[in-house]
Design a protein around this nucleic acid. Structure first.
Lengths: 214, 214
DNA sequence: GTTTAATAACTGACCAGTCAGTTATTTATG
DNA sequence: CATAAATAACTGACTGGTCAGTTATTAAAC
């Protein structure tokens, strides 16, 4: 009856928040916001439910923290990727596709995207945050680069924003596919291959006519 | 106090189910499954909560009916669209894009897609149904048509499934954009224009090399 | 007057959030 | 070094509200 050796908990104030957010990420990604129980999150974080409230005021706050934490690292990687700006446009794009597919493949963005989409009406601020901090910057950088390449005559005309969407949408769809249909028996998409094939298609489709003047 | 003329309700057994599903579609699309209250659905359908249970056994059944009803009409329209198969491939594709964007623009698929994505883990059968009855048939028809065109030498080589995804993903993303970011202040995407521009890009990107033999 | 669509008051399960108490850890004291 | 007093991280049983689903009752329809 008496706990022989091990103590029944450790005091680890510094590590708890991150551990809780990580556990919450898993549970939220699996169940969605409403169906996720705080008891589950606590259990997965190796902590009691009460302890959650030592670090977060409400369930919504935990959710916010999860979504927030999903923004920063990806934004960082994208910016880093696009900082190496000196490559020729096609090669830049190929590198970009590689990075996006690696993010898509081995980070939990998938689950987060799902939640941002699914809970956008219930948590408008989250959709706003995600758009302002991740989607718009990324789209902005990309359409900027596209517009510049168009100005240099490397790409043909066309609304740069639409072009950027044409470019990234298959990768995003691949992530959504993995989250939605693969758990239900669908063949996984080979996102890196898909991305590569699509980038080449896009580059050919955006190549200016041979005879056109710059 | 006494209801002078009008009766307090009408008995309309035949019409109720559709009205309930329509009301539920709105509420589910706005709130998601868990956050949607049956009282709200009932109120919007002009009926008491108890009446829902005359036609559906559980909340999940209502949800299933909503998602089911989202499948059929779209499947129908797509099949009809692709039945007119005699046009040349590029024109067929342009017509297809027009139809897809009109579906995207003025049908409630957006809300349904959101729910299928968001609740796929909690309702695996729904994701399965959607995939089996809508996504796979559509993808199948499209990649079949693409493969045929490739065999005829009208399109260059490349995994037909990936090609099909490259083709439709911007439209899908447009719908998701509208559902997720527009309610939060984002500029709406012009889906028809996006679709048109993308189809042309895709056709150019898939055009075989001029010198290549058939 | 019989049938049954429809209502509205009700029940019970579930779960976010609370808090009184417990235990690990730190700090003061001999 | 002990060891006792103080602190704060942590626990888990409890509660209050919400809401899916039930049921006793009413009233429309024929």
């Amino acid at each position: 009856m008496l706990p022989a050796g091990q103590p029944k908990f450790k005091r680890r104030k510094a590590d708890r928040p991150d551990e809780i957010v990580a556990a919450a990420m898993d549970v939220f990604a699996e169940k969605g916001f409403a169906a996720a129980r705080l008891d589950d999150i606590a259990a997965r974080a190796g902590v009691s439910k009460g302890a959650l409230y030592l670090y977060f005021a409400t369930k919504e706050d935990i959710f916010r923290a999860v979504i927030e934490q999903g923004v920063a690292p990806n934004l960082g990687r994208l910016q880093t990727a696009l900082a190496e700006h000196d490559a020729a446009f096609p090669d830049l794009l190929r590198a970009f596709a590689t990075i996006v597919s690696s993010i898509a493949t081995d980070s939990p963005v998938g689950g987060i995207i799902k939640m941002v989409i699914g809970e956008s009406r219930n948590f408008p601020e989250l959709a706003r945050t995600w758009r302002e901090r991740l989607v718009e910057p990324a789209l902005g950088v990309m359409s900027g680069a596209i517009a510049a390449a168009q100005a240099r005559g490397e790409l043909r005309a066309g609304d740069p924003r639409h072009c950027a969407i044409s470019l990234v949408s298959p990768m995003l769809l691949g992530v959504i596919w993995r989250e939605t249909f693969v758990p239900v028996g669908a063949e996984p998409l080979d996102i890196p291959t898909l991305a590569q094939q699509h980038v080449e298609l896009w580059l050919r489709g955006m190549r200016p006519d041979a005879g056109a003047a710059a």
